[in-house]
Amino acid sequence: MDFILYGVGRWLHIASGVLWVGLLWYFNFVQVPGLKAAGADGTAPGITKHIAPRALELFRWAALSTWLLGAMILGSKLPAALLFQDKAYYPIGIGAWLGTIMFLNVWGLIWPNQKKVLNLYQYAQNPVADAEKNKARRTAFLASRINTMLSIPMLFFMVASGGLFRRAMFGG
């Protein structure tokens, strides 16, 4: 059981998190500036039709699986970590909160607004008006940028939370 939880579980949590944060950084460092340039020469539709929807699908499911696997690893210690009930849980508690806020941003702000921007799912046949699309684009952009900002301390607290690393970084 420990092997599944701490071996396979942690490995899958990290692999999932790499996929999630990798795509998040791709959106922010590559796709957003790329789309701006593509919009100027009329080549944006190829990206918004074939690349962005695929990236978003992987992105949102990776966010969910990363969160669920993280919760699985913490197991019965999840409430204690989130409520900072023991000093040893402070670092992972901060990491878990940052990850949780990022996960909520993905499913609560980025995905619903990107569906409007890219005419996906219920908007495929009924696209929203341009004004609403622009508003949705800005909201999704800011949520994505907030997540990029939060990913920096989140990764720090995740990697600095385990055993030797935690003692080296935080003492005790």
Binding site: R145, I146, M149, P153
Partner: peptide, 30 residues
């Protein structure tokens, strides 16, 4: 004032500042 999140360097600097602040919060709270 311009929103720092509108630029990539601004976003990264905000993330680094937040990391340092949270690190010291955890360190001092322990």
């Amino acid at each position: 004032m311009k929103n720092p999140l509108d630029s990539i360097p601004g976003t990264i600097i905000c993330g680094l500042i937040l990391t340092v602040v949270l690190y010291y919060v955890v360190l001092l709270a322990r």
